[in-house]
Amino acid sequence: MSASTNLVALGTIVRREIVRILRIWTQTLIPPAITMTLYFVIFGKLIGSRIGTMHGFTYMQYIVPGLVMMSIITNSYGNISSSFFGAKFGRFVEEMLVSPMPNWVILLGYVTGAVTRGVIVGALVLVIALFFTDLHVAHPVTTFLSVVLGATVFSLAGFVNAVFAKKFDDIALVPTFVLTPLTYLGGVFYSVDLLGEPWRSISLVNPILYMVNAFRFGVLGVSDVPIATAFVVMLVFVVGLSAVALRLLKRGVGLRS
């Protein structure tokens, strides 16, 4: 297919994904906003007021970037895994598989849709956070790049999960047993500098730590890890997971018999 026809095909998938996100907005946009509001009230206001400052910021200010990034990650992952698995389950993924569209267009279309949901939810949570505390974005470009890269990494991971999934339980396993623990241990609620060894070093193998800290650096200007390292980690995951996803699509794993 030519570049222009690929662009039309890509636009079709992205449009369909965004229509889906907006059509079921009570499932895709409202629940994370409510959950994060509860986090702000309980951890930020009630408990946070007794914790004191962290890296020179109030506890509320400190956890806002972590919670925003947590929303972006979980929603990007959840969007692509449920949408692509739904297409597999309902067999309408075949509409794309029988078309001349190259695999990379299918992948990019779904990833763009998932990143879009992550960004919309992240923006909603950020707006809600402003009702609880003052925030000034210290490095807008870093903030933007960390959002896009973080969402892309977990969109790709969600896609791989959906390719392998055979039933709906399979797409719930990873968020429950992998994503949630890694997020909670990824410096969302605390600075890893508070941890003693070996826990601090062990925390450094958690990729979410780098995403949370890159975003926190963008918003607050503070980070537990070198910012360049954080971006290298995210880029490595993007390249690695893209290669895995494209290989799975080429071989037709879980899609073609």
Partner: peptide, 12 residues
């Protein structure tokens, strides 16, 4: 939408 999307997958 099903028909229009299908055409879109073919670059139409």
């Amino acid at each position: 939408d099903i028909c229009v999307n299908q055409a879109g997958f073919y670059g139409i």
